[in-house]
């Protein structure tokens, strides 16, 4: 999720029957970020997200 959509993600998880679903959070916005900014976000997303995919 980008930071500005965290509350949307939390609500959608709840209404879809998965309250408390974990997700990685990266800086908003993506649409106007530089390439270096996108790389940083990708690293940050995987740092948080890889733990969620593993036991």
């Amino acid at each position: 999720m980008t930071t500005n959509f965290v509350s949307a993600a939390e609500l959608m998880a709840k209404v879809l029957g998965m309250p408390g679903y974990d997700f990685a959070i990266i800086d908003h916005p993506v649409s106007s970020a530089t390439d270096a900014g996108l790389r940083e976000r990708a690293i940050a997303a995987l740092k948080q997200g890889s733990a969620m995919l593993l036991r």
């Binding site: 993506v30 649409s31 995987l46 593993l54």
Partner: peptide, 27 residues
């Protein structure tokens, strides 16, 4: 959940918005 990501196949589902192509390429 998986034991490891090593050797695995990972799928991305992008919303297709501006910036996502490069973001997922970095991922």
């Amino acid at each position: 959940r998986l034991d490891t990501l090593r050797g695995k196949t990972v799928g991305f589902i992008s919303n297709g918005k501006e910036g996502t192509k490069a973001f997922f390429a970095h991922m």
